[in-house]
Simulated scan of single mutants.
Amino acid sequence: MQMKGILPALVTPFDASGAVDHDTLADILEFQLKAGVSGFVPLGSTGEYYALTHDERRAILKTVREVVGDRGELIGGANGSCTREVIEQVRLVRDAGYRNVLIAPPYYALPSQEELIGHYEAILDAVPDVDIVLYNYPVRTNVEVGFGVLDVFKDNPRVIGIKESSGNLLRAIEIGEKYKGSYQLSCGSDDQALDFFLWGATSWICGPANCFASHVVDFYTKFSAGDIRGAQDVMRKLFPVMATMEAGKFVQKVKYGCELAGFKVGNARLPLKPLTDAEKAEFRTVYEASQA
């Protein structure tokens, strides 16, 4: 798989009863496809995978695959707190017809780098018919996908890329330079997207694309055409809202952004609580400024 362009990290819409709203999910997919995204990543952090049942995950994967068809690349999130659980999730994604999975270090267990290498080796051995995109998000897992891990898998054709969400731009630069040709680098730090692409990223796995699809696609189109100033202008307009999202309550703000964009996606599931009226007003200010 070639990881190129904008790959929205999909929200999971919920209806008034709290059930997954597949009709709204389909509408969001069509909205983003019309804007020109290259593919989708369901069951990630933005999609609240941790708050979903196995049956809900299967149903979401099915809806996304049926709606998208051959119109975009698909990468399914497959995460858990131990190797056994992650292997179960990888098989669930594979059985839904996905070839590519996005896998972060297991949270809570806090594996060493040697143990993390063993974790990924066990997944590769247990499910030989999927390719892996590594996911470095230490703020969520408290474990980094270190350079020792990247060294081990750099020649493995089934470990195809890394979504870098550490917020450490120097690390992203080093990955882009040191592992060029070994890993496809995907931006996972939304407020650093321009810098990522300047240093070799080929894609942006982007939660804000749920509500800013046309903007982020416009950014990528301009950058790909060599219009760096134009891409910078788009990011300059988006930066305040991206920075606000990255500052905290990311999922709730993406969902509220979807509401402002015309999609009723419901609230995040507990333990996450809805934004307060003051937080909504603050977010709406930067959201509306980005639309001007």
Rank of each mutant, 00 (worst) to 15 (best):
P240G: 10
K222I: 11
M3I: 06
Q113F: 02
G97E: 11
I228H: 10
L194I: 11
G97T: 11
G18I: 05
E259P: 00
G266Y: 07
Y49A: 14
V217H: 03
D195W: 12
V20C: 06
S186R: 04
G167Q: 04
L150V: 00
G176T: 10
S45V: 10
V217S: 03
E164N: 02
F40N: 11
K264D: 14
K273D: 13
Y220T: 06
P8M: 04
M245R: 09
G44Q: 08
W204R: 02
S81G: 13
A247N: 07
E88F: 08
S38N: 15
Y107A: 15
R99D: 15
R94A: 12
N210D: 03
C187R: 03
Q2V: 09
G72Y: 08
Y183M: 01
K178N: 01
V217W: 03
S203A: 15
V139E: 11
V37N: 07
A109F: 12
Q192G: 05
A278E: 15
F147V: 00
A225N: 08
D191Q: 14
H215E: 15
E56Q: 12
N136S: 05
D27G: 07
Y183C: 00
A122Y: 10
N168M: 02
A26R: 14
F263M: 05
M3C: 12
A172E: 00
N100D: 13
H119W: 09
V101F: 11
P208Q: 00
V254F: 07
I160M: 05
A59H: 12
L124Y: 08
Q291T: 06
A126R: 06
G161Q: 01
A16F: 01
L185H: 03
V68L: 07
L74H: 09
L170I: 10
L102D: 06
P240H: 07
D190K: 01
A104C: 09
D70W: 06
R284Y: 01
G146T: 10
V159R: 00
T202H: 03
V64G: 10
K222A: 13
L124V: 11
T141S: 14
F153Q: 02
R236P: 03
E66A: 14
V265I: 10
A292L: 11
Q2M: 09
K253C: 03
A225Y: 00
E48F: 01
S17R: 10
Q232L: 12
R65N: 13
K255Y: 09
A201K: 05
G77K: 07
I132K: 01
I160Q: 02
V90K: 05
E282A: 15
A225Q: 09
T276A: 12
L185M: 05
S203T: 02
S17K: 12
K249P: 02
D191E: 14
M1A: 12
G161P: 04
D129N: 13
E48P: 07
A59Q: 13
N156I: 00
V265H: 06
R57V: 05
E66V: 10
G72M: 07
L29E: 09
A292M: 10
L260F: 02
V130N: 07
R99N: 15
I6V: 15
K249R: 14
F14K: 08
T285D: 14
A209D: 08
I6Q: 08
F40P: 14
I103G: 04
R99Q: 15
N168K: 04
A201R: 03
A261K: 12
E48C: 03
D15M: 03
K255W: 06
E88Q: 14
S224V: 11
I87Y: 04
D55S: 14
C82P: 01
Y183R: 01
